[in-house]
Design a protein around this nucleic acid. Sequence first.
DNA 1: ATGGACGTTGCAGATACTGCAACAGACCTC
DNA 2: GAGGTCTGTTGCAGTATCTGCAACGTCCAT
Lengths: 255, 255
Amino acid sequence: MSQTVDRALSILPLLAEGPADLGQVADRLGVHKSTALRLLRTLHEHGMVYRQSDQRYRLGARLIALAQEAMENLDIRGIAHPHLVRLNEQCGHTVHLAVYEEAEVLYIDKVESRYPVRMYSRIGKPVAITVAAVAKLLLADLPEAERRALADKLDYPLYTARSTPNAPAFLRELDKVREQGWATDLGGHEESINCVAAPIRGADGKVVAAMSVSAPNVVVTADELLTLLPLVRRTADAISGEYSGRTPVKEANTS
Amino acid sequence: MSQTVDRALSILPLLAEGPADLGQVADRLGVHKSTALRLLRTLHEHGMVYRQSDQRYRLGARLIALAQEAMENLDIRGIAHPHLVRLNEQCGHTVHLAVYEEAEVLYIDKVESRYPVRMYSRIGKPVAITVAAVAKLLLADLPEAERRALADKLDYPLYTARSTPNAPAFLRELDKVREQGWATDLGGHEESINCVAAPIRGADGKVVAAMSVSAPNVVVTADELLTLLPLVRRTADAISGEYSGRTPVKEANTS
DNA sequence: ATGGACGTTGCAGATACTGCAACAGACCTC
DNA sequence: GAGGTCTGTTGCAGTATCTGCAACGTCCAT
């Protein structure tokens, strides 16, 4: 809607791929070098890009700090965190918290496994949306129309033989997940890693976040992991209760 | 330098404080509502802001994902990570990696303590620049003029009785740190937490990052923590060597 | 019902952005 | 060391693009 801002913002994902110099930025934006320079300067003043010693630009520290604040301000995260830690203490595995937003699912919190074998994931990283257990829960709760539109738009990369292959299969899976109220990912993303996940709901019953427990085969089998399901669901329900204000937390003052 | 982009970017830190509606954004920017609307729309299209169900805006998921990529692309981080993990396995405490950039020091990696008592810090979070051991190392390496200018500009919050109180004290501390080649924070940020830190240098000898080991008093005393200094320095030197290309890592192919 | 608050749209005017072309500096080649 | 190329930078004139206004729609509360 605003050309200048639009161009400036387009620079950011471009730099996310790796550092680039002025000419490269100008080319990929399709504008004159001087224009690109002025945009980069403005971004620089705001700390969104950084000019490294070889003169090339890359994403800046302020961007990272902003994203940090953005996550801290998601109140669901603050509420959930202690519960996630407790769950981790009880089962020892990696615990994730994720939210859905405009066609993306992001991990917004994580408590690491106590076992030496850890899985690769990072807070802030977009989730493999077609296979992750948390993604299934979050998408399953979307309105029908939106869900179908999204499913059509997605790519279905075959991470493993068990990955969701296409839109119809995905929609069937979502229906199943919605009905049963929990989800799994059994080796759909990485061959040897399984997850069980449960939804966190707001006061209106809508799914606002999802949490999961993940563990590699070498630590526990899929069946063993599934025995944790009641615990995961109880934790998710506890978070839901607190989030929707039903549980007055500790120092309730409604005497 | 570019008014429109400047205004648009000014919205982001504003939203970082918390969700805001159109009127609030327009007021704080000092522009007409319709102008603010168009800026927000453009930001929205790029996923930098999100419109929650109550119509208010907050920072969006794309911002978080971008910041994520920004960090992954910092090559120092990828090189350092395995070393940090190994150090954590050896000593059991929380290990941090931080970089300096334009008046800010950011944690860019962290390996959590094995002990149940953990300290509060987050990847991407700006560091308490006047007291953190890693910050001292990074600032101590700046050119004299820049260092003095920065020291004058900073605030010196008294987190504890041991916090650095003012610019002259800070500059003296930086001189000491530069000379000895390592730094500590003994209860300067949180009363009961101590850190020891060592610098990571590039091929030209300049400090490109700093790493630290932190532990609360209840786990180890400050003196005990200091016995880890040689180990921390050795780890930092190993990372420096790999980063500056002196150590051909594993599969060297200069046959 | 009626008033107010908030978000949204079309429009005319002018500000602020664009691309050009020329300059400056670094680096390399010959 | 001179000449070439490549990259980043600046001033300028033209106009595309952004701005603020005012009017409208919608929702909520009185």
